[in-house]
């Protein structure tokens, strides 16, 4: 696809920790019960490329239905891609043998949005946090116990919490547990799917700071999926803006927030809420809603809602261009 974002040049030498090339995931849409036939494809992710550097955070922003969560599932190998490749430390994970795949799975962990449903209510904290180590590592029980205690301390909980059940914790503490569990295998990357949006305002800052501190300490990379632009600005080094399964703009965080190029990015920024009543925002209020990915608009997928749409936008798919070093966007305006 021409709309594929070229990964920007990076500062760190050598292969990125994770590199995604032209990744696609189409879900078949079927009709009929017994003799079902495929009538079309839902293009949830349609040709995206990006890279995640060691110890850095990449943010993926977009509205619901833009394919952010499918991207996360593809990276976690919970879904098989239709096309494209995921390179982890230079190796294509879908070409790898089962031992390598197992290793990949333990190197890439996840923390989900809702700590009420992502922790098994029947397991004690020590089992929740220790389970990944028991399954993946052949180490004596005492070592698991020790590491579990250290992890609990690292995420700001105490050793006495080890015997409790998840319902005995508040939302923020549960998210800390989920993070401890995510860290237990010493992963190289954690996929954070809206990690703070279910939490209270004063707790969000605690969790965001904790995630930043842990990144420093463990050197782990994050892939942060979020819709709240201010959160992304605080947490991320690089940002990819997604719309209907494609990356429309990709830049480092400073560049993107100071100089947004794509009309969709601009509209998102102007729709985001200001941090002070005196801040004047551009009034780009998008009309309508995100079109169905079952039948995406022709040409540029954003042209149905774009305030700057021209004739060629509905016909021609815009190419991805590098406007400034490391800042790419797909729009006919540039």
């Amino acid at each position: 696809m021409t709309t594929t974002g070229q990964p920007p040049e990076t500062v760190t030498p050598g292969p990125a920790l994770l590199e995604v090339r032209d990744l696609k995931k189409y879900f078949p849409v079927t009709k009929g019960l017994l003799l079902s036939r495929t009538t079309g494809y839902l293009k949830a992710v349609d040709g995206i490329s990006f890279r995640v550097e060691r110890g850095k955070t990449l943010g993926i922003v977009g509205e619901s239905g833009c394919g952010k969560s499918t991207t996360a599932k593809l990276l976690l190998m919970l879904e098989e891609p239709t096309e494209g490749s995921i390179l982890f430390e230079g190796e294509d994970i879908h070409q790898a043998n089962s031992a390598q795949r197992k290793e990949y799975r333990s190197s890439v962990q996840a923390v989900f949005q809702d700590p009420w449903s992502s922790l098994n209510p029947r397991m004690r904290v020590k089992d929740l946090v220790g389970e990944p180590m028991v399954i993946n590592w052949d180490v004596p029980h005492r070592q698991v116990e020790e590491r579990m205690q250290k992890l609990l301390n690292d995420v700001g909980l105490s050793s006495y919490h080890a015997n409790l059940y998840p319902h005995e914790f508040s939302g923020g503490q549960r998210q800390r547990l989920a993070i401890a569990r995510g860290l237990s295998l010493n992963p190289k990357m954690i996929v954070l799917d809206e990690p703070v949006s279910a939490l209270d305002v004063s707790i969000r800052a605690q969790i965001m700071n904790l995630l930043k501190d842990l990144q420093q300490e463990y050197g782990v990379s994050y892939l942060l999926i979020a819709h709240h632009l201010a959160t992304v600005r605080y947490m991320c080094d690089w940002v990819a803006v997604m719309y209907l399964g494609q990356i429309v703009e990709y830049a480092d965080v400073k560049e993107l927030y100071n100089n947004p190029l794509h009309p969709y990015t601009k509209a998102l920024m102007s729709a985001a809420l200001p941090s002070h009543p005196d801040i004047e925002q551009d009034e780009i209020i998008l009309t309508g809603e995100v079109p169905s990915p079952l039948n995406p608009p022709s040409g540029c997928r954003f042209h149905t809602r774009c305030p700057f749409a021209m004739d060629r936008c509905s016909v021609e798919v815009p190419e991805t261009r590098e406007i400034a070093p490391g800042h790419t966007t797909s729009c006919h305006l540039y």
Binding site: V201, S202, R204, A205, M208, L229, A230, T231, R233, Y234, M235, K254, Y257, M269, A272, L273, P274, S275, I279
Partner: peptide, 8 residues
């Protein structure tokens, strides 16, 4: 405690 959209 709220991150800001307009500044780092």
């Amino acid at each position: 405690s709220v991150p800001k959209l307009e500044e780092d």
